[in-house]
Design a protein around this nucleic acid. Structure first.
Lengths: 254, 254
DNA sequence: TGAAGGGTGTCCATATTATGGATGAAATCT
DNA sequence: AGATTTCATCCATAATATGGACACCCTTCA
């Protein structure tokens, strides 16, 4: 371990992230399974976190959900991350013009986290992606769009130990397919996920760049395969790039 | 300690709360002072929290601020606490009609936490209250409005050991003054803070009630003493109660 | 210029604290 | 009514967080 005396902090953060992935909450057993910790430990930490208001235990469902303190701290933190104000208009336009659902994701370490969603009008919608969901970089259209524009020395470690990085997604995302996808993303400017996570559930994404010119966020669209055929991809890609550029410009300005 | 194995969790939560009180961040020394923990411990926990993205260390100022993970978790938690959508319109109207700054605070345990602010047009403004600030119940107009409508058996423990509950505020808020203030709040429906926290900085508040009829939130206005003279208090109080009722009704409905 | 003061970062022996195997209760399914 | 899954708690153990001590870097002031 790099940082001393960090074990509990790491575990607490892990549990918070796991709970945060599911807005409807997670059961103790589920958290034990996904965290790899023992049940007494998870139970004790959850109870302590709930006592502090960082989590809540819904007695009806038995699920653990994020608590009021997280909400309060989040409201304060949001002042430093004014994403909502900047991203929402772009999401609205994307959803309106395409009919698909539009998403805004943030890079966080070697993952992307979905933070905002705008439902499209098209009556068949995928719920693979929603607020709080995390994917390893290189998986899903947002993570592919971001990873494609990272400097090579940041990409290589991930691709080099792909199985460790991608975890459960490694089976559906062989490393050579991902490499290929990244290359095509660099050429087109936007990424396409041809149903790799869930068959028939497609997505396209474009990266948004921070003041240092690094890909830190992504806009993406999801929908069913027939809506992402080759002819329409160009149209959707153009829209995504347009909005991504607009956001990048606004973020450079401030 | 009631919960076993909770020491670190409690300390972590304490540090997060302390950092969250100051959107501009806090120094290590400040956190050591306010937490009562030793410096190595605080330093180690802060470093660990930063490694998890729950905090960030601004190398320029040396201050610690809330990190991206808190923001991300907060965005997910916000779905369960849709306060912004409901409170913002009321705040806007209050600020527009009175010219004072309007605030929305949440009860959290035996404290109130300010979550939303809407600046008024009046050119002299107080910055005692801002997002993230916490007061013990019974202190400041929001906390008084909430406490006044709690069942007596929840008020008494706090008033009974007032010094412990109010902490540093106990000197400016003698318990009999607070008792009197609570009584007057119950009669009028709204609370008045006649510059008890900072001389000349006045405030008025009204409680918003949850589905169980418990005072869980509060709207409040702050400004300088001349703007809160007796004749204007009635006008401001009426507006506050109007908006508080409106919010209560909306929250009952859902 | 150099000593004092206030701040930050790190080490490591110590014992306090978190750990998790084990057990039992409770709920849910078959 | 037994089987299976999930949740809650105990407590001896050792792994872990602890904090006194030290090193360092500023700025201030005599």
């Amino acid at each position: 371990m790099v940082v001393q005396g960090a074990q509990v902090v790491g575990r607490v953060a892990l549990l918070l992230r796991l709970v945060g992935r599911k807005p409807e909450g997670m059961s103790l057993a589920g958290l034990v399974r996904e965290s790899g910790l023992t049940r007494p430990t998870v139970h004790r930490l959850l109870t302590s976190l709930a006592a502090e208001g960082l989590l809540e235990h819904d007695p009806a469902s038995g699920k653990w959900v994020l608590g009021p303190e997280i909400f309060l701290l989040g409201s304060v933190a949001a002042a430093r991350f004014p994403m909502e104000d900047i991203a929402r208009p772009s999401l609205r336009r994307l959803a309106a013009e395409t009919g698909e659902s539009a998403f805004f994701s943030i890079r966080r370490g070697n993952e992307t986290v979905c933070v905002l969603r705008e439902e499209g009008s098209f009556p068949v919608r995928s719920f693979v992606l929603h607020e709080g969901v995390r994917f390893p970089l290189g998986v899903a259209s947002a993570g592919t769009a971001i990873m494609a524009f990272l400097p090579p020395d940041e990409q290589e470690p991930l691709l080099g130990d792909w199985a460790a990085h991608a975890g459960d997604f490694a089976v559906g995302h062989p490393v050579d397919v991902v490499r290929d996808n990244l290359e095509r993303t660099r050429l087109a400017g936007y990424s396409v996920n041809p149903g790799l996570i869930l068959e028939g559930s497609w997505g396209m994404g474009a990266a948004v760049f921070d003041q240092q010119g690094r890909p830190a966020w992504a806009l993406s669209l999801t929908g069913i395969e027939p809506r992402f055929r080759a002819d329409r991809q160009e149209f959707l890609g153009k829209l995504l790039l347009e909005e991504a550029h607009r956001m990048t410009a606004r973020l450079q300005g401030s």
